[in-house]
Amino acid sequence: MPRSNDVQPEDTIHRGPPVTVGRYGPGKRLNHWITASCLILLLLSGLSMFHPSLFFLTDLFGGGQNTRMLHPWIGVVLFLSFFIFFAQLWRANLPNRTDAQWVSQIGDVVNGHEERLPEIGKYNAGQKFIFWGMAFFIIVLIVSGIIIWEQYFGEATPIDVRRIAVLTHSVSAVLIILLFILHVYAAIWTRGTLRAMTRGSVTGGWAWRHHRKWLKELAGRGRIDPAE
């Protein structure tokens, strides 16, 4: 069998019963939650400076001056943690032919008719879209963010560049927040998904229903823990 991008070191079937499937190891989960915490803090502090009606959110950070000071540093932490995550997962998120099929049948996806869809590997096209979208906007945000980081880079670039950067930063922030809402919503709507990022595993049924190709591949390679 050719080497698959979909199978990662910690992906293992646990016999159970009931059958569970390891999806994320402790390192990845910790990293995911560091990234998630940073994103939420950035969202709150950033929105406080985006619209006057949300300025009260600066109180969460100890006032406007502290919010202004903290926001970029949280961004740096998010950038680092996300790109560790990125390095580990990008291969599994490379697009393939099944993705085009999945997108063309988006109606079946939304209506929960997964039996009509082709078998999916570790990630479906929607998950890949979120992955690459996050990666793209995080790069745009860190670059534009550094340009407008007044404390250290205030005059490092010409004023026209800084004006474009501040607009780009705002627009990208809005788009990444929309992506974030989609990500959280999809994780909750697809019941049984959250435990992949808390306990690190999903039920066998979840893997069968949503990522059957991945499950079959694990089984076919004998990535099965001995019965307990």
């Binding site: 709507w189 697809t190 019941r191 066998g204 049924g205 069968w208 099965i224």
Partner: peptide
């Protein structure tokens, strides 16, 4: 999220997974 129909794993999905693992 509150009022829509969630995408739930059905009991037969779990059974199919058990079967797959046993066969493997």
């Amino acid at each position: 999220g509150l009022f829509g129909k969630a995408n739930r794993v059905e009991p037969e999905d779990e059974v199919s997974a058990e079967k797959l693992v046993e066969e493997a």
